[in-house]
Design a binder for these strands. Structure first.
Lengths: 203, 203, 203, 203
DNA sequence: GGCTAATCGAGACGGTACGTCGCGTCTTGCC
DNA sequence: GGCAAGACGCGACGTACCGTCTCGATTAGCC
C-alpha cells in the first residue's frame, strides 16, 4: 500500500488525522477529473485548493502526486464482477462486459491513461497497482478459463496467461486506440465468440 | 498535420526556417528520451537547451509540448513491415513480430505512454496520430486478413476490424500492462496461432 | 508607500514573510548597483539570483521593477543634514555641501538617474518619492530660508519655493549635466555666496 | 557624431541608402514618443515596426538604441533663441523663456529623461550630446553674460560657468523635480530677477 | 483541568518550466 | 549593396506548481 502506517499500530499521540480531510482530498481529485479539466488540473496545488485543505495535509498522507492518484484510482475501483455462471462462455461475456462499461466511464479512461503515462517513470507504483487491482480481476478471469479447461470447453494446451490476454487484449485495444465511444454494445460477445471459435474457418 | 504550412505554398518572405534547427530539436528530444530521463525531462525548456536552440525557435514550429511530441513520435516511426508472404499465417506472425520488437525499444515505449496520457486532453492530436501512423500499419494487417479471407484461410463472416484487434490486442495488453521485458521471443507466433485456432478445442 | 500592508493590521495567516528575504533583496540590488553593472543589470531576475531568492519572493513584495527601485532608493536615503547653525549662510552652505557629497557617491547618481528615467512613465511613483524623501530635505532648506528672512539676512519679498531653487538648482544642474566629478570642493560656498550677493554688481 | 560615415566620402557602391528610411525611422520614434506610449515603447523593434522598416535598416544606421535616440533628440532640437537685445536682462529672460517653453513640450521632457537615464552607462554618448546641443545653447547664454560683465551690469568677479548655472539650474530643478506643468508663465522673469538682485536684501 | 504533541488551514520559501517579447545578428529574394 | 521580412540564440518578463517550511489555532490522549 502507499498510505503510510496502514495496519500498523501508531503511537497515537497528538491530534489524529482527520478522516474528513482524507475524503475531501480524494473527493476533490475525483471532482476535478469528472469536470474534465484534464490531467493538468490534477496538480497537488489544485487538488488541495479544491479540497479546501492545506498542501501539507496532502503531503502528510501521500509522498507525491502519483501515489495519491493511485489511491484515487483505487477509490474508483468497484469489486470485480462476481460470476456465478453455469456456462463458461456466459461468464467470459460477463467479465468483458464489465470491463467495457468501466471503459466507457469518462473518469476511468482519464485515470487509466494518467497512470499509464507515469508507470514508466515509476515502475514500483505500477507494479503496486497491477499487483492489487488488476491481479484480482485477472484471477477471476483465469479461474473461469481453468474451469473451462477442466470442463473441456477451453483448450488445455494453452498458457492460461496468454489465453486471458486473447480475451482482454482486444477490448483494451479498442478502449485505448479508438475513440472512447467506440465500445459498442455487443462488443464483449463478439470478442468472446471470436476468440473461442478462432479466426480460421472451422470444418 | 501539426506543423504549420506543410504542403501549402508559403509566401517565403524573410529568412527561411532552419532545417538544422528542426533536426536539432527532434534529435534532442530523442536523446533525452533515450537517456531515460523520463517524460518529465521532456520540457520545452530542456529540449531547447539540449538542442542548443532558443525557446522561441521551438515555439515557432510547434504551439506546444504535445504537438512537438507528436512529431517526435512520427520521427521514430519506421515504415511498417513489408509483407510479401506466400502464407497468411507467416505474414501475420511477421507483423506482430515487428510490433513486438518495436515495443521492446525503450524510447518507443516511453513515447507511446506519453502520448497515451495526453490524448484524452487533446483528442484532436490523438486522432491526428491515429489517422496517420496507426492507420497505415492497420491497413497492412487488414490487407493480409482480407487476403486470407479470400483464400479461405480466415473466416469471412467476421468484421475485419474486430479480427485485427483479436491479433494486435493481446500484444498491446502485454506491452502496457506488464513489464516491458515481458514480450518474449515466440510471443507473436503464440498469439497468431492462438487466435487462428481459437480457444475452444477443435473437434 | 509601495509595500503592501504597511501600517495596516494584516490577518497574519500562513507563514509570515521573511525579513531576511527583504534584506537580501534590497542588499542584492544595492550590490549590483555598486558593482557598476549599470541600470540594465537591475533585472528582477538578476536581483533574485544575486539575493539567492526565488523570483516569486520578489514579486510577492513589489509589483514591479520600479516599485522595488523606489524602496532601494529609500534604503539609500540618509537623514538630511541637521543644521544647528548660528549663521544662515553657514547653514545654507552645509545643506548644499551635504547634497554635493551625496551626488558624488556613485550609486546615488546611478539611482537618481534611474528614477528620473522612470518617473515620466510612472508619475505616481515619482510623486511618492518626491513627497517623502525630497520634501523632507526641502523643508529643512525652507526653514533656514524663513529664519533668514525673519532675521533680515534673506529677502522676504521672494517666494520661498523659488528662493530654494535658486540655491539647489545650480547644484542639480552641475550633477546632471556635467561629469560627476565636476562637483569640486568649495562649490557649495560659491553657489551660496553667488545667490546671496546676486549677479549684479553691488554698490 | 553618431551616424557612421557622416561627412566622410563613402565608396558609394551598390544601392545608396534610402533617405526615406531615415525619415521614416526618426519620424516613427517621434510619433511613438508623442503618443505617450512611454519610454518602454521606444524599442528598436517597435520603432522599426512603426516605421515599416526592417530592423537591419535601423542597425545599419545606428549601432544601438542610445545612438538612435541621440539623433532623435537632435531632430527635436530647434536652433537656440537668437538674442540681439539691447538689454542684458531682457536677453536672459528670453533665453530662459525659450527653455521653459521647451520643457513644457511633452516629448522633449520624455526624451530628456530617457537620455538622463542612459548617460551614466554611456558617458561617451552624453558627452557627445552635451558637447553639441547643450554647448551651443550655453554659449549663447555665456555670451550674454560676458557682454553684461563688459557693460558693468553683471559681476565680473564670478566664473561665467557658475554664473550661467545660477540662471539655468533653477529652471532645470523645476522641470525635473516637479510636475511638468509647474513651469508657469513669468517663471523666467522671476528667476532672472532673483539671481540678478541676489537673495540678500540690498542695502 | 492542564500538558504534550501531532494535526489543521494558510501561505511564504527556493526552484523550475511555462509561453511571450525584445535584443542585435543573420539570411532569404527582390529591387 | 540596400531593402522588408523574418528566423536565429539569448535572456528577462510575470505566472503557476513543485515539495518544504513555518505560523497560530485545534484537538486528541495522558496525567
Amino acid at each position: 500500500m502507499t498510505r503510510e502506517g496502514d495496519g500498523a499500530v501508531r503511537a497515537a499521540r497528538g491530534r489524529p488525522r482527520s478522516a474528513a480531510a482524507d475524503r475531501a482530498i480524494i473527493g476533490a481529485a475525483l471532482r476535478l477529473l469528472e469536470r474534465g479539466a484534464g490531467v493538468g488540473a490534477l496538480s497537488m496545488e489544485g487538488i488541495a485548493r479544491e479540497a479546501g485543505v492545506g498542501k501539507a495535509t496532502v503531503y502528510r498522507r501521500w509522498p507525491g502526486r502519483d501515489e495519491l492518484l493511485l489511491d484515487v484510482m483505487r477509490a474508483l475501483d468497484e469489486p470485480p464482477v462476481e460470476v456465478r455462471g453455469r456456462c463458461v462462455r456466459e461468464d467470459l461475456v460477463e467479465i468483458l462486459e464489465g470491463l467495457r462499461r468501466k471503459g466507457l466511464a469518462k473518469r476511468d479512461s482519464a485515470l487509466l491513461r494518467t497512470m499509464m503515462s507515469h508507470f514508466h517513470s515509476h515502475p514500483r507504483l505500477w507494479r503496486e497497482y497491477r499487483d492489487t487491482v488488476i491481479r484480482a480481476r485477472r484471477e477471476t478471469l483465469h479461474a473461469v478459463l481453468r474451469r473451462g479447461a477442466a470442463e473441456g470447453v477451453i483448450r488445455a494446451d494453452l498458457d492460461v496467461e496468454l489465453l486471458g490476454e486473447l480475451f482482454t487484449g482486444p477490448l483494451l485495444s479498442r478502449a485505448l486506440l479508438h475513440e472512447w465511444r467506440e465500445l459498442p454494445e455487443g462488443l464483449a460477445e463478439q470478442i468472446v465468440d471470436g476468440v473461442l471459435d478462432g479466426a480460421r474457418p472451422r470444418g
